[in-house]
């Protein structure tokens, strides 16, 4: 898993005549056409690759039921979303606290940094079985794995962002005899916000990943359970449909973070035109 994400940059220059959404949609249509072609012409069996229509049908069956039906997407989706969100909030909170502690105190940095990096190199989903042993098969283990995965990108990015402060801004606060807390709250934290949001952006997707992995290992409900159950009866179309739902969920969560970022870090990319800094 990557460590430090650069603060989000604005979109690439668009191509001149065709709107970018047309290109994206065109690609999707082409992919589905190719998929349909592969299924019908190469005679792939449905347990390898179901036809697009079969996936669409599976998707619709889950949508067209009452929200409380155990056959629909709604209950498992809600469970996964809730656990991922709790995990994201808890993991990010601890990540920000740990990153701030390391950035502000040399002692804490020396204490945590080597282990943070060592853990960073460990594939953290490998810890998931252990967490299931500790927290059981209920929601606790899902939240814990999600939090564990969300923790690291936020911690590393907060630390990097808080350290990436322009010395002039610290001089300003020093000249005003500001306290450490004031400097942190009024200058360092907002200054680090673009970095922190880049970390949150990764963390929200990782939290979802962690929840699904924990659900694979054993759970009563959730999208991970839906996938394993469909897989058990080789309902590959059902697996595909669940993946589409999860992909959409991931996109929604990512967009929410980006939306929050745009509201909070409105100055980023535009605040750099103050002379003296490139």
């Amino acid at each position: 898993m990557s460590s430090i994400a650069a603060p989000a940059k604005s979109a690439l220059p668009r191509s001149r005549n065709v709107p970018s959404s047309v290109i994206t949609l065109g690609g999707l249509v082409a992919l589905i056409a190719l998929w349909q072609f592969a299924v019908t012409r190469l005679h792939l069996p449905a347990y390898i690759l179901p036809a697009p229509l079969a996936v669409l049908k599976a998707l619709w069956t889950g949508i067209a039921v009452a929200p409380s039906s155990p056959l629909g997407w709604y209950l498992p989706l809600w469970s996964t979303l809730r656990n991922a969100t709790f995990g994201f909030v808890i993991g990010s909170g601890f990540g920000l606290a740990a990153g701030s502690g390391m950035a502000e105190s040399a002692v804490i940095e020396r204490l945590l940094m080597p282990y943070a990096f060592a853990l960073q190199c460990l594939p953290k989903v490998a810890i998931a079985p252990l967490i299931v042993i500790w927290f059981g098969f209920g929601d606790g283990s899902k939240i814990a794995v999600a939090a564990l995965l969300a923790f690291f990108p936020v911690m590393i990015n907060s630390f990097t962002g808080l350290r990436a402060i322009e010395p002039e801004r610290l001089d300003l606060m020093k000249a005003l005899s500001a306290t450490r807390l004031e400097t942190y709250r009024l200058v360092k934290l907002p200054n680090a916000a673009p970095f922190i949001f880049a970390g949150l952006d990764m963390a929200v997707v990782y939290a979802l990943l962690g929840t699904i992995v924990a659900e694979f290992l054993g759970a009563q409900r959730g999208m991970g359970v839906v996938i394993t159950q469909a897989e058990a009866v080789t309902d590959v179309a059902g697996v595909f449909a669940a993946l589409i739902i999860l992909g959409a969920l991931g996109m929604v969560l990512h967009s929410l973070v980006r939306l929050a970022e745009k509201r909070v870090v409105h100055w980023s990319d535009r605040g750099q035109n103050q002379g003296g800094r490139a």
């Binding site: 002039e168 801004r169 001089d171 100055w267 605040g271 103050q274 002379g275 003296g276 800094r277």
Partner: peptide
């Protein structure tokens, strides 16, 4: 507090 500093290129806080 008796001394005020004007920095190069204003050094305003963009947020």
């Amino acid at each position: 507090a008796d001394v005020g500093v004007v920095f190069q290129a204003a050094n305003l806080l963009p947020w």
